[in-house]
Design a protein around this nucleic acid. Sequence first.
DNA 1: CGAAAATACTCAGCGCACTGAGCATTTTTT
DNA 2: AAAAAATGCTCAGTGCGCTGAGTATTTTCG
Lengths: 165, 165
Amino acid sequence: MAAVDLTTHPGHLARRLQQAHYLLWNTMVSEEITSPQFAVMNALVAEPGLDQRTVGERVGLDRSTIAEVISRLSRRGLIDKVRDPQDGRRSLLRLTDEGARVHRKLSVRTARMNRIFLAPLSADEQAVFFDLIQRVSDAAEGLRNPTEPPTEPLTEPPTEPLTKA
Amino acid sequence: MAAVDLTTHPGHLARRLQQAHYLLWNTMVSEEITSPQFAVMNALVAEPGLDQRTVGERVGLDRSTIAEVISRLSRRGLIDKVRDPQDGRRSLLRLTDEGARVHRKLSVRTARMNRIFLAPLSADEQAVFFDLIQRVSDAAEGLRNPTEPPTEPLTEPPTEPLTKA
DNA sequence: CGAAAATACTCAGCGCACTGAGCATTTTTT
DNA sequence: AAAAAATGCTCAGTGCGCTGAGTATTTTCG
């Protein structure tokens, strides 16, 4: 008998929160377009012509997942995908007219859903909610992405200044 | 140009939080046993002999998902699964000795991981963090599970008492 | 220039998560 | 007791999410 209390486990809470959101999204926003798909479309509204990897970075999806999400959006005719003539490795992405239309429609519904989802919290609590989750996520991301904070700046050791010159 | 700010979208934040947790779990707890698998084992430590559906209910996994998770735990020899002789529909579950051993080991590591994961928050903030997420999740779950709260209390309408008699 | 390294993407494999449909076994009704 | 409903589980299908390996294209460097 040494069972643990999962209500103090952030991972478990995060999963439950996401599940709850998933269900609400399905009933209030769309059964066709998922939340990650919407996030990708949204990134392309903000910055049309991004390549696949960068979009993934913007919305927090790894290379494999973003590829699949994009393939679905593309199959539905919501985004265009073309090889970059300047760099044959890249795929450049942008919304189609239909994609832009769908994005507008879903934006409205998403806002409505978020209001309902967050209704149990006061405005102040909502702000705290965002802040806390974000801080935890950012910190954890930092743990994985050493970011190589210049252990010894690539520029150079304190021998001589060169940005100066 | 009507892109939305995803940092105020709880669904997006929940996904990011879970991803961050997933990565940390993998490096600090186990590469074999996942967080949902641990949750299932934990439920069986608390209540040995539960049937599959109830375990799913305890940890928040639907019938299909719980079936897969259990099949993996079973394949690894961490849980036992037997048909209920009283009710041929049910599968009764309990940890094997090895399962109990693994659960103990992971409990320690999980506690350590949670400390690090939550380190960016003060003790007070951690309490708020749990509370807010839980309230939002519970409320959203309530939206889907009508629970049939006695539209008109089953006890009785104000016309005449009948439990009386 | 040509080999080596970096970069963008694809592919296969595993695992979580949900729905809808189907099967077997109770339980309830008639 | 037979028909109907409920219950527990399985199966097929879709989608997110990660890793490791592989391919093609650029960039860098000797």
